[in-house]
Amino acid sequence: MLTDADRPAPTPGHPFAPVPYRVRAVATETPDTTTIVIEPWGTRRIGRTQPGQFVMLYAFGIGESPIGVAGGHPDGQLVHTVRNAGKVTGALGRLTPGDTVGVRGPYGHGWPIGEAKGRDILIVAGGLGLPPLRPLVYELFARRESYGRVEIIYGARTPKDLVYYDEIQTWRRRNDLRLQVTVDAAGREWYGDVGVVTTRIPDARFETGRTTAFLCGPEIMMRMTAQALVARGLAPEAIWVSMERNMKCAVGFCGHCQFGPSFVCRDGPVLRYDRVQHLLSLREV
């Protein structure tokens, strides 16, 4: 009887063969969330990432986990922000500079930023929904003249759960960006807004006919936010959400990430809201 040990290891070029990367830097975002910067270890590297795509990060000997790309650079560096939510992400969060990690990808369809040229942009992030939106934010900064108003609404459970805190302060100083940060609850040390992220939608400044919204966060947060945006007059076709499902193979093969008629790994993770809104309100999908 064959066992896993008898199975030949994937060879380079095989869709399941990870490319070795080395950890270049590590930063603690919150007590359970870490940002790692990795770079190719050797001559091989994965293809260039697009904002909104994800990769499979392999903690050697433990397992793989789908992680959104929080930053990518032409020299091959990748940025990922990982919350310790299990064995694999816990191991990824404990990586230190010099450690190695396996990478497969990039996978999926990212934010349709090209289609949004000339339009106002509204970005709504909840909790760890900000990292997959971060490359989009920098893409907008790089081509700022190609877009109208840009507004970011970022919500987290408490001030301690906000990621990229220092970076956000630099965004706040830009005069070509409107930023709202809110938390669900806070102590007196917090002088910002308190209330779930949907409470900031009425104050968002956008024209419904010329705005594209990009949402990323827990599914229930995206559902509530999309409903609030539609209630303000935004067309469902102008709203994009990034779905998170239990991606395993990442190449549309295993079916673990099936979401209605779609495989999130292959057809998503970024999907147009009007195409999935009927599924978002269903349980057990």
Binding site: D161, A185, V196, T199, P218, I220, M224
Partner: peptide, 13 residues
């Protein structure tokens, strides 16, 4: 409604 959403703890999912 906002209190109800808070109770759902959006960021716990």
């Amino acid at each position: 409604e906002n209190t109800r959403i808070q109770l759902l703890d959006l960021h716990a999912h």
